[in-house]
Design a protein around this nucleic acid. Structure first.
Length: 214
DNA sequence: ATATCGATTATCT
DNA sequence: GATAATCGATATG
């Protein structure tokens, strides 16, 4: 998949809030192939979305929103297209985007990106030294904790940002790229409601988490 | 290649 | 006090 050569940040059009006012399952599928852009001062990083998970509202026992509104998860209940960043396992952050209209909970977790620009900075943020090989590129943004570390996304600074705005530091754009094929599987790392196929991956993409396919 | 396990802390019960 | 939308290191086939 040689998208990086063709990638042009200037051709990226931000997704508007209406995009996110839908069932998280639809939003999740349609986010595959879109691009996450991170601005940090002069630093610019971007990666194509290749793996996501949908989290629903009260009916989804695995969703943070299932227990009702709390200070932590309030963004999920708020307006669409905003960043929900949470801290997990004492070490890592995970990035989500809120879905559905204000007052209705739902979100999509970003699980893996194919790095496009700013790979050097990402490697530095991840503490990786040495040459970037095809192998080590997979360690940059493959996995929800990794992609947050690579892009220096933290809850204190980056929770509840408007991801439809170029000004916010994290936004999502469409450059017209369309993914070849989508596969749905069970979600990773959950114990409740684990049997629903709400994880969506770009079939055959090397940057999807888990054992390397062939 | 797959399996197991420790790290480390915010959040909720 | 228990758990977690994880990762990386280590061990073993």
């Amino acid at each position: 998949m040689k998208v990086s050569r063709e990638f042009d940040l200037r051709k990226l059009v931000p997704l508007n809030a209406d995009f996110y006012v839908r069932d998280p399952r639809c939003v999740a599928c349609d986010l595959l192939g879109k691009v996450v852009v991170r601005h940090l001062g002069r630093e610019r990083m971007a990666g194509r979305i290749v793996e996501v998970e949908a989290y629903l509202g009260a009916g989804d026992a695995a969703a943070h929103a299932a227990a009702g509104l709390t200070p932590r998860n309030r963004v999920l209940f708020g307006p669409p297209g905003r960043s929900y960043v949470y801290f997990i396992y004492g070490n890592y952050y995970c990035l989500n985007v809120s879905c559905l209209p204000d007052g209705v909970a739902g979100g999509v977790l970003f699980r893996a990106l194919e790095p496009l620009t700013g790979l050097r900075a990402m490697a530095q943020n991840r503490g990786l030294t040495g040459e970037l090989t095809e192998r080590s590129k997979r360690l940059l943004t493959t996995g929800p904790g990794r992609l947050c570390q690579a892009m220096r996304i933290t809850r204190a600074r980056d929770n509840d940002l408007d991801m439809t705005s170029l000004e916010s530091g994290i936004w999502i754009g469409d450059d017209g790229y369309r993914v070849p094929r989508i596969v749905a599987t069970r979600r990773i790392g959950i114990s409740k409601a684990a049997d629903h196929p709400l994880r969506y991956i770009v079939a055959g993409n090397q940057f999807v988490s888990g054992p390397k396919p062939k």
